[in-house]
Design a protein around this nucleic acid. Structure first.
Lengths: 131, 131
DNA sequence: ATACAAATGCAATTAAGTTGCATTTATAAT
DNA sequence: ATTATAAATGCAACTTAATTGCATTTGTAT
């Protein structure tokens, strides 16, 4: 929970924008987009700053990008292990979550195709939007 | 291979743009983007027309959209069955292909999440780019 | 041949994301 | 504590994908 210590550990300067954004990441359980930050942050940081903050967090391994096909790139708190993990995107509230899974994603490809990475996005309803 | 008959069967007017685009779809084995059509079509159709042609083809079930995370929406020839199918995107040439598979994509979700659709994009090297 | 609906082209717009540059800020050195 | 400096920020402008409105053109049924 100690936002400022996390920044120091990762060698990132403790700036107001980074503190605010990292605090939000630690609070929310779903992935966040730059639009979320524009709306959720009390101080109106410039979108350039938000994008660059997200970039520095990604470089530091604090977050990872999630393309949930919404047209708005999202960022999820936590580093991605090995081959990535699936993501779940709610059709109703459009919140996107990382899915922890034990099953290894594998897929037979046609002859001659070699697989390097696999990206899976499941859409459906999250517990808050179901029924 | 008969482009014009396909259009008639689908209740689509046989316009030059549709004929040209559908002919390309029938020739190519990978998904195509509006940029491809801008480059590949002899007559310079307006991008609005290209997009609207793609829309009408999608409505008619002739093609389906593929988001391969390239930032450029692609369209693959052929209707999508049931729950969709995986797609393969080559890291080098950036061509994207539909993957025919028998294995049913399934994934355990956390409690309370219900799955509706699953989208899988595999990245790696295609046979033409391997080694 | 003609009428009408649909398709097209053009211009303008929206929105995500990026880049350059001048200014400000965090931090390490003094 | 003060200062130097490298990095972070804000602003403006730009790029690119995709969409919309509208006037014009084209395909097709009559």
């Amino acid at each position: 929970m100690d936002v400022e210590r996390t920044l120091t550990e990762k060698g990132l300067k403790k700036t107001s924008c980074r503190i605010a954004i990292l605090a939000l990441f630690k609070k929310k359980t779903h992935a966040l987009s730059y639009v979320d930050f524009e709306h959720l942050l009390p101080l109106g940081f410039d979108k350039t700053t938000i994008y660059r903050t997200l970039y520095s967090f990604e470089e530091a391994g604090l977050i990872h990008k999630v393309d949930d096909h919404s047209g708005l790139l999202k960022y999820a708190f936590g580093e991605v292990k090995q081959n990535g993990h699936p993501h779940f995107s709610c059709e109703k509230c459009h919140n996107t979550y990382c899915v922890e899974t034990t099953s290894t994603m594998k897929l037979e490809l046609p002859k001659g195709f070699t697989s390097n990475q696999i990206s899976t996005v499941v859409t459906g309803l999250c517990p808050f939007c179901y029924e």
